[in-house]
Computed example of a mutant assay.
Amino acid sequence: MSWSESFGRIAAQLAQHRPSLYPMEELDDLTSLKIAKIPVDGFAGEHRSYALAVKAGLLLLNESLEESHELSQSLHSREGSYWHGVMHRMEGDYPNASYWFRMAGGHPAQEAWTSLIREKLVETGEDCFGSPSFAGKLEAWTEDGRFDPVGFNGLVELQVTRVRNERVEQWLMDLQVAEMHTLLQHCYTQSGGEGTWRERR
């Protein structure tokens, strides 16, 4: 089976899944094995790096942190650094996550993610989720309109360690899956994939 066919099948399985902010176990260990077997032998240079970044992203959508970490830390690229940051955020190592987000710099996928954040903020309106501490942190994150991943990392840390508000949790999970989808789309396109990865069903 070709890389695109293998990728399409797994992407279809994971497209609707919303990973937890702090997963306790992977969604499906069989899916993790299937991702590992997606062939990348036909790729070279940057295309290979992007294809491996796609696999790192799929593993995080499956909440397979250890396997994704192994891949992302071998990638000396902004995409590898970004997935590395997401992995550490999901495992609760927030300082390390911030370090890797800074290493990724202003990633091109951030523009698409920013548009989705703005839509989500419009939906939310003035709702502060009943948490003044979260509302203050959210206001600080949104005031310059850059929506950097380091600031988002801080929001997730606040929710997980202090706020523990179910509405905040769901809102942050929505933003997290949007972040992962936009980065995965970027990696897929740069690897030579056509269309959107969610159309590969």
Rank of each mutant, 00 (worst) to 15 (best):
H84Q: 09
L138N: 03
D144Y: 02
T124R: 15
S74C: 05
H17N: 09
A12W: 00
H88T: 01
Q110S: 13
G151S: 07
S133C: 07
E169I: 03
P149F: 08
Q159S: 10
Q190I: 01
G42R: 10
P108D: 02
G8H: 12
M173Y: 01
L14E: 06
C128N: 08
K55S: 05
E91Q: 14
Y22W: 13
A97E: 04
E139G: 05
S64M: 08
Q190N: 11
S74P: 02
R162T: 07
I35Q: 01
Y94T: 09
S2C: 09
N96G: 12
L158G: 04
F134K: 00
L52C: 07
H88N: 01
E26I: 06
M87C: 11
P132K: 14
K37L: 14
F43V: 07
Q13S: 10
V86M: 14
G145E: 12
G80R: 00
L158F: 03
Q176Y: 08
T114I: 05
L33R: 13
S20V: 00
G145M: 13
L121A: 07
T114H: 10
H181D: 11
Y82L: 10
T182A: 04
Q176C: 01
A56M: 13
G193F: 04
H17F: 12
L59K: 05
S32I: 00
E123M: 15
A15F: 06
L60Y: 03
Y50T: 01
E70W: 11
V168F: 03
A178H: 14
F152M: 13
G105Q: 01
T142M: 11
G45Q: 11
V86F: 06
Q176E: 13
Q73M: 14
W3D: 08
E91L: 08
Y22P: 03
E179A: 07
Q159E: 15
F152K: 13
D93R: 14
G125K: 12
R118F: 02
N153L: 02
L30G: 06
L155F: 09
W83L: 12
R162Y: 10
H76L: 12
E126S: 15
E199V: 03
R198H: 04
S191I: 12
Y188F: 15
T196H: 06
H107C: 04
P23K: 14
P149I: 09
V163Q: 07
M1F: 05
E91A: 11
G125D: 09
P108V: 04
E199K: 09
E194L: 04
G57S: 01
L138H: 10
V54M: 15
K34V: 02
G195H: 08
Y82K: 05
